[in-house]
Computed example of a mutant assay.
Amino acid sequence: MVRGIPNHLASLKAEGKKPSPTTSPEDASMHNGIFHEYNTTAPKSSSIHELFSLKHRTAIVSGAGAGIGFEVARALAEAGANVAIWYHSNKDAIDKAAAIEKEFGVKARAYQVDVTSASAVKDAIEAQVSEFNNRLDIFVANAGIPWTQGRMIDGELSHYHNVVSTDLDSVFYCARAAGEVWRRQYTASASKTLQNYSGGSFVATASMSGHIANIPQLQSAYNAAKAGVIHLVRSLAVEWVKFARANSVSPGYMNTEISNFIPPETKAIWRGKIPMGREGEPGELKGAYLYLASDASSYTTGTDIRADGGYTAV
């Protein structure tokens, strides 16, 4: 190993040869199953203010019309990012984006996007990259729906397909389209031409349900989908190491509209299983997402952050 130069590249150099220009960043991170040294570099600044700053960056947040997604979008804007908010049917997102833009002095827009359509996701990302200064820095895949039909044997297959399509497939589609942009920006040396660019950051909303089986409610399909999200992100962290980081956040029971269908007596049982004794508020997750989106987490990839009030600690 020549310091900073992988063995196979060093041998090519010694022979007067150059690596193939068609070698993808994914393939260039390792040789024969061994990672190369210095696939990444540390941020130049150690200032907390600069590490958490998202100034000049572009972020897209899906499922951001309300709840966790909206709070995350607002937090990224407060840190300086221009933000594209994706919503499914909640048109209040349009006014919310305008309010974010006015409050934080960044560009914020809302778009209705069908995240269960790979083509719709790709078209939306490409269009918004063009609209937002020809760059993408952060993608938060937050769109999701609950399983509401109890026992899996008795649940409708159409409901299963809808849950998996929204909670897992959409994350894959978003990652695929965003990753294509980040790979393109990497190969175009965007780090030298885009201000404050340090590679992509993909953050998916998983769930503590990807770690445990919830009781007393039964939701096997949802649990399986969220476990899939966690492992997808781990795998992407390895695959994308040259050009993007990939992480997830696993919220516990949160005080959002996604659980409005749950009876109060069931929620009381939940609280009895949470050391903190309460559901979380969406705003309590902002710090985790901001950390993963920013350079403060430059050495963090393939990680899942549990924010569950201690539920999975018991």
Rank of each mutant, 00 (worst) to 15 (best):
N7A: 13
W270M: 01
A188M: 10
D304K: 05
L218P: 02
Y160S: 05
T22G: 04
K13I: 15
N214L: 11
V83T: 07
L157D: 10
L232D: 05
S191H: 15
S165K: 14
S29A: 15
V164S: 03
K273N: 09
Q128M: 14
N7E: 09
I138E: 02
A296V: 10
K267L: 10
S62T: 15
F35P: 08
S189G: 11
G65F: 06
T166H: 02
N214H: 08
Y160M: 13
S165D: 15
N247E: 04
F261L: 03
F132C: 05
L157M: 11
A175K: 00
S53R: 10
I215M: 11
F70C: 00
R109L: 11
G69S: 02
D304H: 04
T266F: 12
V129L: 00
H49F: 08
K226E: 02
C174L: 09
I5A: 05
P6R: 05
L12M: 15
Y173R: 00
I85H: 02
V314I: 14
S165E: 12
A268T: 15
E284G: 12
K286D: 01
R135V: 00
Q219P: 04
K267S: 01
E265T: 13
G105Y: 06
K107V: 10
S158Q: 11
P275C: 04
A246E: 01
Y197W: 10
S117C: 11
V233Y: 04
T256M: 07
T41M: 14
A225D: 05
F52Y: 15
K102N: 09
A143K: 05
P21A: 09
L290Q: 03
A42N: 10
A98L: 10
G4E: 04
H49T: 07
L12V: 06
L157Y: 13
L157P: 03
Y222H: 07
A178L: 07
L136N: 02
A206K: 03
S45N: 08
R245S: 05
Y197D: 01
Y160V: 09
G80S: 08
S297P: 06
I94V: 14
L157I: 15
L9M: 12
N255M: 09
R109G: 03
Q149A: 12
G200R: 01
V164P: 01
V249F: 10
A141T: 10
S62A: 14
A93G: 03
K122G: 02
S46P: 04
R184S: 01
E131A: 14
S298K: 03
T166E: 00
F202Y: 11
I212D: 04
L194E: 00
L12A: 07
L194H: 04
A14T: 12
S62G: 11
I274C: 09
L136V: 09
A204G: 07
A93F: 05
V129D: 00
A177V: 12
I60A: 04
G200V: 04
E50H: 12
P264I: 10
D169C: 05
G199V: 04
K96L: 09
R151D: 15
R57T: 13
K102D: 08
S259A: 07
Y186F: 15
R151G: 06
S191C: 13
